[in-house]
Amino acid sequence: MEIHLKIIGVLLILLALVHAIFPKYFNWKEELKSLSLVNQQMMSIHTFFIALIVFLMGVLCLTSTHELVETKLGKTISMGFAVFWSVRLIFQFLGYSSKLWKGKAFETIVHISFSGLWIYLSAVFWMNYLN
């Protein structure tokens, strides 16, 4: 289990860092122009804080692996992470329209890859909590 939590730690840190390219990749400067200033800024600020919490989850998995596996608090944290990533998995299918990826090779690969990542994260955290 510890090796999986270490792998997850690295993956989550990488995922957090990928958030840095979102504004440019998704052309937020142009795409968000029609929004009010508060909504434009909320997009940027919320993206930053999502990236921060994902980064901190990754750091916790890397630096406190043994505690996550062996302590009651670690199991409770794992349960919280399991719920978080399980809900994220559900939103992968219910929150995004299939029109965004169906029939598009790159977008389909991204959709499938992230679905697999959310499944892996959810499964490892649930297994750690339940064992």
Rank of each mutant, 00 (worst) to 15 (best):
L32A: 14
L73W: 13
M127T: 11
L37G: 06
W85C: 07
T63I: 02
H4W: 11
F26M: 15
A16G: 09
L89K: 06
I8W: 01
I13W: 05
S97I: 12
S36V: 01
L11P: 00
H66G: 11
I3Y: 10
Y120Q: 06
F84D: 05
I50Q: 11
I21S: 12
F49E: 01
L62K: 00
E30A: 14
L14S: 03
L17Y: 03
Q92S: 08
L32H: 07
H46C: 13
M57C: 09
N39W: 07
Q41E: 12
I50A: 14
V59G: 02
A123I: 15
M1R: 00
K102T: 13
I112W: 08
V54S: 08
F26W: 12
L52E: 05
K24D: 08
Q40L: 04
A16V: 05
V69C: 06
Y129T: 06
I45D: 03
L35F: 10
L15R: 08
K6H: 02
G116I: 05
G58T: 05
N128S: 03
E67D: 09
T65S: 02
V10F: 13
V59H: 03
G103H: 05
H66A: 12
E107W: 08
L11K: 02
E107C: 09
V54T: 15
A51V: 02
K99G: 12
L11I: 06
V83Y: 03
G74Q: 01
N39E: 11
L17D: 01
A82S: 13
F55E: 02
N39H: 11
G58C: 04
V38H: 09
T108S: 15
A51Y: 00
